[in-house]
Design a protein around this nucleic acid. Structure first.
Length: 432
RNA sequence: GGAACGGUGGCAGAGCGGCCGAAUGCACCUGUCUUGAAAACAGGAGACCUGCAAGGGUCCGCAGGUUCAAAUCCUGCUCGUUCCGCCA
C-alpha cells in the first residue's frame, strides 16, 4: 500500500509518480482515495467528539450512583443514551468509509523509484549488462528445443504429467529429476553464507496473500482451496515476506536475510496455449527465492547485492545471459524498482526470464505491518522488503539442455552441479 | 473430528461491570550514590489515529451483542495447551 499521508499532504508527487506507469485509470482511483480519506477524517473527528461526551457522562453516572443520587444518575443516563445512539450511526459510517478506502488503496500500485526507466511495455526495458557468455555462433546440435532433447533422453515425461494432473504440468525423471534438485541445492548452498534457509508453509491464508500484493487484484492467478480457505503460494516470497508480519523488529535485526526453496503454483490464467510445449510455463514449478527485510537506508545496496547473487548463479552455470531493468510500464504492482536476468536458449531461440530481483520499498511491509524500532528514536517505522528469485528451476533446466547439448546428443552437466549429480557428468540416452 | 481449559504490556502474571491503559515481579531507560560498576533509593517508560500544540479518540486474541458504562457479562470465530480419535 502507498502511504495515505503522502497522498494527503503531497498528492501531486503521488500523481506524477503513478502517471509514469502509463495507466490513466490509476489517476481516477487516486482521486477517489483522496476523497474517501478526507471524508473519513471528518466523520472520525465528529465521532470521537461524541465519544468523548459519552465517556464523560458515563463517569458522571458512576460518581452520582456512588453518592446515592439515583435520580440525578437516571437523568444523566438518559442524556448519554441519546448521544450513544447518534454515536452508533457515525461509527457505522466511519467503518464503511474505512473499508472503502482500504479497498481502493489495496488496488493502487507502488510508486516507481525515481531512477526506474520510463517505458510503456517490456520492449522498453533497457539492457543493464550483457550479453555474457554468448558464443558467436551456435552449433546445429544446440538448435534443438529442450522438450525434444528431454524426450529423447527419457528425462522429461510431460505426457504422463498431463495424464496425472492435466494440461500445463510437467514431470522430470531420472537424471532430469536429479538435475532439478541439483539446481535447488546449488542455489541454496551458494547463498547460505548470508541467508537463513527457511522451509515455509506453501498453503497460506488470504491475509498472507494480500500482504505481498497478489490479493485482492490478482485472485484469478492463484490456486485456491475453497474448503479450507487457503491459497497455494505462487512463490516463496509470499510466506517469507509475512514471516515477520505484525511484528516490530529491532533495528539490530535488520537486514533479515532469508532464502527458501519451494514449489510455486500458478494458474497462468490468460496465458492458455502459450509456451505449452516444454518447461517454460507450468502450473507447478520449483524455485529458490532470496528475501530481505531491511531499513530504507540498507535497501539500495541490498538490491545490488541480490542482483549480483542471482547473476553469480547463472554465470556459474556458464549459460549465456543478460540483465535488464524493468521499465515503469512493465513493472509489477508492488515493485519499486526491478531487474531481470534472462538466459538465452538456442533451441527455442528465445531469451528466458529466469530471475527477477525487486525492491518494494515499504509497499508490502505496510500491508503486512512489518515495522522496526530505531535505538536512537522513539516510535516505530515501516520496514522495506526486497526479494529475488535466486533460481527458477524449469527454465534454467531447459537452457542447460539446449546450450549444453553435445554433438552426440548427450547433455553435459555444468561443473558447479557435479557435486549434486551422483557422479554423472553427462545425461545420455537410456540404453535399452 | 470430539472434549476440557486458556489467549491481558518485552516476559511472567493479577484483575472478572464504573476508582483499569490496566496491580505486582523481572527485564529496560534516566538520575542520586560510586573512580567506574554492582547494590540501594528516586523517577521514567507501550502501540495506533488525529492535531502546530494543548488535547482528544482507539487498542486487554478477532468480530458482533447486552449496558448510561465492558479487559470483566453473552454469542460466533480464531489460535494455543492437554486428553481422546485419526494419521506420514
Amino acid at each position: 500500500m502507498i502511504d495515505v499521508r503522502l497522498l494527503r499532504n503531497d498528492p501531486a508527487v503521488v500523481r506524477a509518480a503513478l502517471a509514469r506507469r502509463g495507466k490513466p485509470d490509476l489517476l481516477e482511483q487516486l482521486e477517489h482515495a483522496i476523497e474517501l480519506d478526507a471524508r473519513l477524517r471528518d466523520i472520525t473527528l465528529e465521532r470521537d467528539a461524541l465519544r468523548q461526551q459519552v465517556n464523560g457522562l458515563s463517569k458522571e453516572v458512576g460518581a452520582l450512583r456512588k453518592a446515592g443520587n439515583t435520580a440525578a444518575a437516571e437523568d444523566v443516563m438518559a442524556k448519554s443514551r441519546a448521544l450513544g445512539d447518534s454515536e452508533t450511526g457515525l461509527a457505522a459510517e466511519t467503518e464503511q468509509v474505512e473499508l472503502a478506502l482500504r479497498d481502493v488503496l489495496l488496488r493502487i500500485p507502488n510508486l516507481p523509484h525515481p531512477d526506474a526507466p520510463n517505458g510503456a511495455s517490456d520492449h522498453d526495458n533497457p539492457l543493464v549488462s550483457g550479453p555474457h557468455h554468448l558464443p558467436a555462433q551456435f552449433a546445429d546440435h544446440q538448435r534443438v528445443p529442450h522438450w525434444e532433447i528431454g524426450a529423447a533422453l527419457g528425462i522429461l515425461d510431460n505426457e504422463r504429467a498431463v495424464k496425472i494432473s492435466g494440461a500445463m504440468f510437467t514431470m522430470q525423471r531420472g537424471l532430469g529429476a536429479t538435475l532439478s534438485r541439483a539446481l535447488c541445492q546449488y542455489a541454496l548452498d551458494s547463498n547460505a553464507d548470508e541467508f537463513e534457509e527457511v522451509r515455509p508453509p506453501t498453503l497460506v491464508t488470504s491475509a498472507t496473500l494480500t500482504a505481498t500484493g497478489q490479493l485482492p487484484k490478482f485472485a484469478d492467478d492463484a490456486f485456491f482451496i475453497e474448503r479450507d480457505d487457503l491459497w497455494c503460494i505462487p512463490t516463496a516470497e509470499v510466506p517469507l515476506t509475512s514471516l515477520y508480519a505484525g511484528e516490530v523488529l529491532n533495528e539490530t535485526q535488520l537486514p533479515a536475510k532469508m532464502m527458501a526453496y519451494s514449489p510455486c503454483y500458478r494458474r497462468e490464467a490468460g496465458s492458455a496455449g502459450r509456451d505449452t510445449r516444454g518447461m517454460l510455463r507450468s502450473h507447478e514449478f520449483d524455485k529458490v527465492e532470496i528475501l530481505a527485510v531491511a531499513t530504507p537506508e540498507q535497501s539500495p545496496e541490498l538490491l545490488q547485492e541480490m542482483v549480483k547473487r542471482a547473476e553469480k548463479l547463472i554465470s556459474g552455470l556458464g549459460l549465456p545471459y543478460r540483465i535488464i531493468e524493468i521499465c515503469t510500464g512493465d513493472m509489477g504492482q508492488s515493485h519499486h524498482r526491478s531487474f531481470d536476468i534472462e538466459v538465452y536458449a538456442p533451441g527455442c531461440d528465445a531469451w528466458l526470464e529466469v530471475s527477477s530481483v525487486s525492491w518494494f520499498a515499504d509497499y508490502q511491509a505496510r500491508r503486512a505491518d512489518i515495522r522496526f524500532k530505531r535505538s536512537t528514536q522513539k516510535g516505530t517505522e515501516i520496514a522495506h522488503t526486497l526479494n529475488g528469485s535466486a533460481l527458477a528451476v524449469p527454465r534454467v533446466w531447459a537452457a542447460i539442455m539446449e546450450n549444453n547439448r553435445q554433438a552426440d546428443g548427450s547433455v553435459r552437466i555444468p561443473d558447479v552441479l557435479l557435486p549434486y549429480m551422483r557422479g554423472a557428468t553427462h545425461i545420455v540416452p537410456k540404453s535399452e
